[in-house]
């Protein structure tokens, strides 16, 4: 009998937990410094890249937006198509929402020219302002990858390196990394898309 009551209670608690609206608050990820007694979170540094339409993309392009970052290359035989397929789900959900954008960096700066990026975007069926595909200076791209991932990766020495991690990273309006997921894992991306909604509510208020 005790067991029975316990089971009913647990079930009830579960149902409550599942119907309760998501009240999670996303943490600010990454290192923090103490400046004059205040905690200051490291933020995404200044960047300047070129997108599929030959236009310059900087932090200002994402002013008043939250955005999703990833790293890829066009002739990637491994995980990139899966990450792109999941990115496409995010794109389709938010493409009419000017508050959300995707920013994909090519790590193959030699082959993924602006023209190649344009063609790739068209074949994927995506475009701006929902999805920016950018290229740029080799060191700048790899440098910013380090900046995003040193925040999102618990263990930067993980085998495989960041360029093949397939991670999607969520950045808020204040240039802080707030969430990330494994872009090859559809279930993890589902959870990540809930995080996007939570961040939207936090930074813009509910619609």
């Amino acid at each position: 009998m005790k067991h029975f009551i316990f089971t009913i209670f647990t079930l009830f608690a579960l149902i409550l937990a599942c119907t309760e609206p998501d009240k999670r608050v996303l943490p600010i990820l990454g290192e923090r410094d103490l400046v004059n007694g205040d905690t200051v979170y490291r933020s995404v540094p200044d960047f300047s890249f070129v997108d599929q339409d030959s236009q310059i993309v900087t932090n200002a392009s994402f002013k008043d937006k939250i955005y999703v970052v990833d790293f890829f290359f066009i002739h990637c035989p491994t995980i990139c198509p899966k990450v792109k397929a999941n990115g496409l789900r995010i794109y389709q959900k938010y493409k009419n929402d000017p508050r959300v954008a995707l920013l994909s960096h090519s790590i193959d700066v030699k082959n993924d020219t602006v023209a190649a990026l344009k063609r790739h975007a068209q074949k994927l069926g995506v475009g701006k302002p929902g999805w920016y595909l950018v290229t740029g200076d080799h060191d700048a791209i790899y440098g910013i990858a380090d900046d995003y991932f040193s925040v999102a990766v618990e263990n930067p020495d993980a085998p495989g390196g960041f360029d093949h991690s397939g991670r999607l990273i969520l950045v808020d309006r204040n240039r802080h990394v707030r969430s990330f997921c494994d872009g090859t894992d559809a279930a993890d991306v589902d959870r990540f898309m809930q995080d996007i909604d939570i961040l939207l509510a936090e930074q813009f208020g509910t619609r």
Binding site: H120, Q122, L124, G125
Partner: peptide, 8 residues
């Protein structure tokens, strides 16, 4: 087996 847009 569904491929990806016009890419695959």
């Amino acid at each position: 087996g569904i491929g990806l847009s016009a890419l695959i």
